[in-house]
Design a binder for these strands. Structure first.
Lengths: 202, 202
DNA sequence: TTCTCAACGTGCAAACTTGCCTAGTGCGCA
DNA sequence: TGCGCACTAGGCAAGTTTGCACGTTGAGAA
C-alpha cells in the first residue's frame, strides 16, 4: 500500500498523523483547552505554521482520526452490492468497519479517548464531523431507495445509522471490557425496525 | 544547545546525521561497494535527490562523522590559551576531544567501524578528510610559533599531530578492550620530542 | 568491441516547510 | 472601561525536499 504512493505523500500522511496523535495525547494529558497549537506542533516536530497547513484548528486535529475512519466507513458502504437492501448494506459495512478501525486499538488510545469524553466543545466538533459524513451518506443511500420521499428517507436513514454507530462506539469507549462488535450489533438491531421500514427495494 | 537553533537547522542536522548513520550501517552490513546511494537515501527516509543536497557521494556521507569530529577538534585547539606551547595545546585539546567524541560510543558503532577497516578506497577518503583539516590546523598553529620556517614547522606539527591521532584512534577501533585515552597519551608522548623541538615560545 | 543497464551526479520546476509578520479575539487586571 | 498579553489564523518570502529528466560512467553480456 505504501509502495504505491510516493515519498512525498507518505511523509504528508505521517505528519498529519503525528499532529493528530500529538493533539490527542496532549489534550488527554492537560485537558483540551490547556493545549496550545504551538505545543502540538512542537510535539509533532513541525513548526506552528505547518500545523495550520494541515488543520485549521485544534479540534480538527483532534478529530482527524474520526474523520478518516468515517470516510473509510463511507467507502465500505459504497462497496456493498447495489442490490443489497440499505439497512443490510449499512449493517454489514458497519460490521467490517469496526473490525478494521477498532480491532487493534491499544489501551492508551482508549484511555485518551475516555479522558476527552464529556468535554462540551469537543462533543460539538465530533457531531460536526459526523454530520459532514451524514450528508454524503444520505446522497449515497438515495441511490439505494425507491418510492416516495427518497430525499427525506435517505437523510433519516443516514442520520439514524450514524447516530447509532456514534453512540455505540462512545458507549464502548466509556465502558471498558465491553465488546464493540456485539454492542454495535445490538444497537443496530435495536434500531432496525424503523430503518427497515424505510426500505422499499423488496 | 538545541534550544538556541531554529527548527529548520535542527532538521537539517538530523537529516545529515540520518544519512551518515544509514551509510555507515549499510556499508558495514553489505560492504561499502555494494551500497547504493538510493539505499542510503531510503534508509534515511529521504529522496535520492536529497542525498545529493547533503553529500556529493557515498564516501562523504560515510566520513561525515570524522569530518565533524575533526572540525570540533580544531575548535578545541583554537580555544586553548595563545600563551600555551603548541604541543601542550594540542595534547590538552586532544585529551578533551577524546572524552567528548568517543566517550560514549556504543558497541555497534565500533563494530561498524571495524567492518570498514582496511577497505582501500575508503582509507583514501579518510586521509583526505584529515588532510583538509591538516591545512587549517597548520594555519592556526602558525600563530603559535615563532622563529624561522614557521610555515614549514606548523605544517609538520599539524601533520604529525593528526597522524598520531588518526593512528591512535584507528588502533583503538581495531583492538577492542583498549583505553583510547591512554593510547592517545602514549602515542602523543612517543612523538612529543620532535614536535616539542619545534616549539619556540619559551 | 559494442551494447545494455544500473548507478550516479546535477539542473529544474513544483510542492512543502519554516520563519516572520499582521490582525483579530478573549481574558485578567488596573 | 481600557490596557496588556497570550493565543490564533493566515499572507508572504525564503529555504528545503521531491520528482523528473538528462548525460555520464563503468561493468558485464552479446
Amino acid at each position: 500500500m505504501d509502495e504505491t504512493t510516493g515519498l512525498r505523500e507518505r511523509k504528508k500522511a505521517a505528519t498529519r498523523l503525528a499532529l493528530h496523535e500529538a493533539a490527542l495525547r496532549l489534550a488527554a494529558e492537560q485537558g483540551p483547552d490547556a493545549v496550545t497549537v504551538e505545543a502540538i506542533a512542537d510535539a509533532a516536530n513541525v513548526s506552528r505554521r505547518t500545523f495550520s497547513n494541515y488543520f485549521s484548528n485544534k479540534e480538527e486535529a483532534l478529530f482527524h482520526g474520526d474523520t478518516t475512519r468515517l470516510r473509510r466507513l463511507l467507502q465500505l458502504i459504497r462497496e456493498r452490492p447495489a442490490s443489497e437492501p440499505p439497512w443490510t448494506a449499512l449493517s454489514l459495512a458497519a460490521e467490517r468497519f469496526t473490525e478494521e478501525a477498532f480491532g487493534d486499538r491499544d489501551h492508551s488510545w482508549l484511555t485518551r479517548r475516555r479522558q476527552l469524553r464529556g468535554h462540551p466543545g469537543l462533543a460539538a466538533h465530533q457531531v460536526a464531523a459526523y454530520t459532514t459524513i451524514e450528508r454524503e451518506l444520505a446522497g449515497d443511500l438515495a441511490h439505494r431507495l425507491t418510492g416516495a420521499d427518497v430525499a427525506l428517507r435517505s437523510r433519516l436513514l443516514a442520520a439514524t445509522f450514524l447516530a447509532i454507530l456514534r453512540v455505540a462506539v462512545q458507549h464502548w469507549i466509556d465502558h471498558p471490557g465491553g465488546h464493540l462488535r456485539q454492542t454495535i450489533r445490538t444497537a443496530l438491531a435495536e434500531a432496525a425496525p424503523p430503518a427497515t421500514a424505510g426500505t422499499a427495494g423488496d
